[in-house]
Write a protein that binds this DNA or RNA. Sequence first.
RNA 1: UCCCGGGUAGUUCAACUGGUAGAACACUGGACUUUGAAUCCAGCCGUUGCAGGUUCGAAUCCUGCCCCGGGAGCCA
Length: 597
Amino acid sequence: MVDQGHDQTTDGSPGESIDFIREKVVADNAAGRFGGRVVTRFPPEPNGYLHIGHAKSICLNFGIANDFDGSCNLRFDDTNPETEDHEYIEAIIDDLAWLGFTPAGEPKYASDYFEQLYTWAESLIERGLAYVDDQDAETISAQRGGFGQPGVESPHRDRQPEENLGLFRQMRDGAFADGEKVLRAKIDMQAENMQLRDPVLYRIRRVPHVRTGDDWIIYPTYDWAHGQSDAIEGITHSICTLEFADHRPLYDWCLAQLDLPSDKPEQTEFARLNLTHTVTSKRKLKELVDTGSVDGWDDPRMPTIRGMRRRGYPPAAIRAFMDQIGVAKTNSTVDVELLESFIRTELNDTAPRRMGVVKPLKVIIDNWPEGQVVMVEAPNHQANPEAGTRQVPFSGELWIEEDDFKLEPPPKYYRLSPGQEVRLRAAFFITATHVDTDADGNVVAVHCNYDPESEGGQAPDGRKVKATMHWVSAPHAVDATVHLYDRLFIDDPEGTEGSETDPAQVLNTGARETTAAKLEPALADCQPGDVVQFERLGYFAADLDDSTVFHRTVGLRDEWANLQKRRDNTQGSGKQKGSGQNKNKKNQQKQKNAKSQ
RNA sequence: UCCCGGGUAGUUCAACUGGUAGAACACUGGACUUUGAAUCCAGCCGUUGCAGGUUCGAAUCCUGCCCCGGGAGCCA
């Protein structure tokens, strides 16, 4: 298994802190359960693209397999032909590989087991443990009862095995219309756990299946397929999210009815990942795509694997993040800032440094010899001399960042302003003298003088400047389109989960700002997907299709921006940070409770 | 209303299963700096949901309560 970045091995030695699932595995191994084998699986339904939430499950399942010298399968849970598609299968295989994980053997499919599942269903019927019900979905649902309310047994519940077997075979052979009959497990209509009130095992659906085409018109439900698929593949630890906890008794019941060659797999649930400012609901993400709120599943603003890939997130950083947040049963919301901090940490080590001006302002050096161009040598990575240097052209006409000049500098501003001397990175000291303005009084160019003695960025007299700024020589600049991103969602969008709030309402329509940037010539050599640091601005990824387009992966930490934000906050509205949100959440919950009672 | 799960710094997780509640991120300050970055040091943050009980000693065990999440698809 390919597995960069996971050097952690777990032997359960005391002092080492491991999550509750790994603890369980350690205990199982110590007890000799499963003969010491550890086999997990990642079981997506191929009905959408993978997102950051799936990445947690992937890292968990593959991580455990790796830690315990086991293996992890990729299995498509393709039991519902209505929503599934090849497009998704291929994308999932691709995304998984990109994340850095290699499944054991070929991808598996629940549909590979349809025949076996069918045979097992017949054996259930023969033993009087399942029956064919003629009632429609609405009736079955009503009879199921409610929380604390008794269930009502179907009039067909006591059909004899021979009759059930005949009907079930007719179901498979097409004698009935879609929805006319179902196969149900005969468990307990009074069970406190709703999942046990005679759950549906098979339904009739005349929809071509991605893989089996028209071979079948009856399809097993999740509950009848999942545990058995695990068992067939010899899965030992079946790890899923919390909402399946109520299904566990059913998972166990199904397996208990069957004669299995090996130990029964064990289901364990963990809390799914919630991120602030992020939606991780397939339905809502699809809505964003369908309504054109984003460019597609791979829009760099999307929390999909493909979105993050286009955005320039390194897979190693995503893995490290998942290791850090750990695994628990507590419902929790992780701050996206933590993810971003891992992205920065990784990119800080790996991304070559370059200069790019994202919002250009013209600088004219009045005392620069007309037409002269010199090459200056700039390091590719300050902290890593092995990364080498590059030659960057310098001339009398430059682009600098709009934010780096102020006609009237605020306190503690030590970038360029009239009379202020600054260093241009790896080049010269310059001092602003005067500006050109347009008819509206906007600054269109800053005139400066340079110090010829300061070549390379150091004055012979040893005088210091407070600011070092990036720049690009105007005649040599490479034009590029740069996308700057903000959070896709203004507020915590998962707070609206359960209500019918349109994700579009919390959508930050200003999440993408596009600028015409001026880049140093070396940036023309970027290959699609390359991620570099534009010094002082952040990390930028060359687009996968067009490497003259750059996406800002993540900005650098910016203390100057923080300082200004704080200044604004203390001056203006004294808005509290967390309390408002919490209150909203509580109110929503109250409303929700009121509704359901 | 019934069942299941959960509640520990701002956030995510720890706490060798009864022995001084720690780490990361965030935040604050300092050092260094040709990125207001990175790096390095230091600091701040806790009535462990609440109230009782057992104990020399409780985040941990017991009782009651509160709050949050999930569950009544022929979705997964």
